[in-house]
Design a protein around this nucleic acid. Structure first.
Lengths: 104, 104
DNA sequence: CCAGAGGTTCGATACAATACGAACCATGCA
DNA sequence: TGCATGGTTCGTATTGTATCGAACCTCTGG
């Protein structure tokens, strides 16, 4: 069962959901940007410069969160996004590596 | 430019399209079944036992074909599906391995 | 030559996804 | 306390996807 903020546990992460979450240009861009960062790095949701309204941005991060790709952490007023690298690696080894090294 | 049958060239295969093609339970099932087969194996489109009508099945194989995941070969009356393993491996190394080893 | 089997295409329908603005709820700071 | 900022939620419009049946094409085998 997902926790209160909607993060699924590691063994609840579904391949189809992860693929569906990545199958959107904006969300793929977010994940690829997070993959460049150092392990465990956090980024502002606004720092990705997505060309959509804030309600749409909120929607996309919700999809990523519920798929298990990112963890969202409250930092006072704002909210940080963190890639669940080790969790995805544990469940689907090599998947994020493939996404990280894919040609632009 | 894709060929006459709609197969994209290797360098035309887009990550988003591949992920979108895999982000459907039926299509993912087809690809995972092809991944179990030997390299270059062919299978009847009907042999997967998809619980849909033949027009819907045709649609799903079209999506897989246009994404670059499979090659469809005419064998007289019927049509065989063949995974483009080496093409995908060349463009997105590790992606299909991750899909192949993913938990059910 | 003709009937059947395998596939595709087309039109229609139902459902899901994306997108937006407005309203709302917090937190942090003056 | 008041207000600006960052996010979420809601309602809605638009678009895309999955699905089906019917019509059509092509090859195979009697």
């Amino acid at each position: 069962m997902p926790d209160a903020e909607g993060h699924p546990a590691v063994d609840e992460i579904e391949l189809v959901s992860v693929l569906a979450a990545l199958a959107d240009p904006l969300r793929l861009e977010v994940v690829q940007k997070l993959l460049i960062e150092a392990e465990g790095a956090e980024r502002h949701c606004t720092s990705f410069g997505l060309p959509v309204s804030k309600s749409t941005r909120s929607h996309h991060f919700k999809v990523l969160r519920e798929a298990g790709l990112i963890k969202q952490v409250d930092r006072g007023n704002s909210r940080m996004a963190q890639l669940r690298r080790s969790d995805i690696d544990a469940r689907f080894p090599g998947l994020l590596d493939a996404v990280a090294t894919a040609p632009a």
